[in-house]
Write a protein that binds this DNA or RNA. Structure first.
Lengths: 235, 235
DNA sequence: CGCGCCTTTGACGGCTCTCAACTTTCGTGG
DNA sequence: CCACGAAAGTTGAGAGCCGTCAAAGGCGCG
């Protein structure tokens, strides 16, 4: 019931599980380039396989990362294994930037992922002499804070359907290409991001599908057919 | 059932509804003093009555505030009135600091409150020339982010009892005097902070009381009698 | 001293979780 | 290119935690 519901002539069938977003935004809008360019910092690249850990919670924060391709989840765990994903990082996003010396959340590659990275101490040092770097660090942290504030509202007060609607609109904004989005993450990841179980996420998506609000082309290829309706559900 | 359960000989009875914390931490630990002292900024004072709005959501962010006395809640609203309190601000805390030009959350005085305030543009300007100020702004935003990340885990994954336990330990740490805390906020505020209803908060507190984990002296005067037990409940 | 807000407590219902079975998709290898 | 097995996703039934509605009690402020 979840397939063949899209006239997806525009979508290449081998696009599954890759995030086809524009690799990295233009240099002008790229905070990493701004910083490294400005301060003459050395940026390396590194790749991680699907589900590979990039760093652990409370691990020393040695590097700051930018997603080049792939996708990353940042999360916290409770002692019994309950997980809260705080953010998904998609191509162009910077993650792992900490004020202190340790990572407050763990990070894992959701799919095969390549990142650019610079040493945190280099950034700190540059910020100590260059106010534009210092300001950029503030900007990036402030951006994360804004997202966290919105997400607290979602987690504390929205219904399951509202959470899923919010999620779809966020992902649509961040990774839709030609009106379609290829989700890199599984239902469990979505649930742990939204404070729900994977079953509840699945049921909400099925309901939206049956109402014609969205179309599937494989469980992770989604087309939004009625964004206005979705926005009205997002409370 | 909620009163006279404490041998509170140390607590003056007229302490209700005032937050008896140390007015403002030592200048060395005071971010506001650090900044204003460093940059020669002008700080004014202002007072708000109980439940008075300090600023609204999406209002221009003209000032940055520091609580001198009293208590403040920062929150977001959904269109139908559901509210998520993102943080409580107690004496010494800085709030209302935004990277952009508008406030992402509204702020209200929980009880009669006096604040110190400086113009945001003054800070921005100072940060443009002084890296220590720029760094301080980053520090404060990073601190808020850390709290928001912890709170997302609470809202997304903790049970009602775990949330209340976490809340009690947080308030104990932040405003306990002589082993007792005088909560400035009502049950509804606590519920809106924890993503619960006021009734659920009340039931959890009653249960902790009946288990001897805490003692009451009026609904808002609480003594923690078994912090270890509470920590084990907070997951 | 008394009114009104805050808090507590109870009964009940429902939204989401849990547990389970089935289906589909996807990666792998023949 | 197809077959196979495992992982991911869907769907159903039932339970439980927390929310809703309601009422009574307590405390604080005027």
């Amino acid at each position: 019931m979840l397939n063949q519901s899209i006239a997806n002539s525009v979508v290449s069938t081998n696009a599954t599980h890759t995030v086809p977003s524009p690799a990295v935004p233009s240099p002008a809008a790229n905070p990493f380039a701004e910083i490294t360019g400005h301060a003459g910092l050395i940026a390396s690249e590194f790749s991680y396989k699907k589900d590979e850990e990039i760093y652990g919670e409370d691990e020393p924060a040695e590097y700051v990362y930018q997603v080049i391709s792939g996708a990353v989840r940042s999360y916290k765990l409770l002692s019994d294994g309950r997980r809260q994903i705080g953010a998904f990082h998609l191509p162009g996003d910077v993650f792992g930037l900490e004020f202190g010396s340790v990572h407050r959340l763990a990070a894992e590659a959701i799919i095969d992922t390549t990142v650019r990275l610079v040493k945190r101490r280099s950034l700190e040092q540059a910020a100590g002499t260059d106010v534009t770097v210092a300001r950029k660090l503030w900007t990036m942290t402030a951006h994360d804070l804004r997202h966290a504030e919105d997400h607290m509202l979602l987690l504390g007060r929205k219904t399951a359907m509202e959470r899923v609607a919010t999620f779809l609109l966020e992902m649509d904004r961040r990774l839709a290409v030609a009106g379609m989005m290829a989700l890199p993450m599984c239902r469990r990841d979505i649930g742990d991001y939204l404070g729900l179980t994977l079953e509840t996420v699945s049921r909400a998506l099925s309901q939206l599908h049956s109402q014609g609000v969205l179309g599937f082309s494989g469980a992770r290829q989604i087309v939004l057919r009625n964004r206005q309706r979705l926005r009205s559900m997002d409370a």
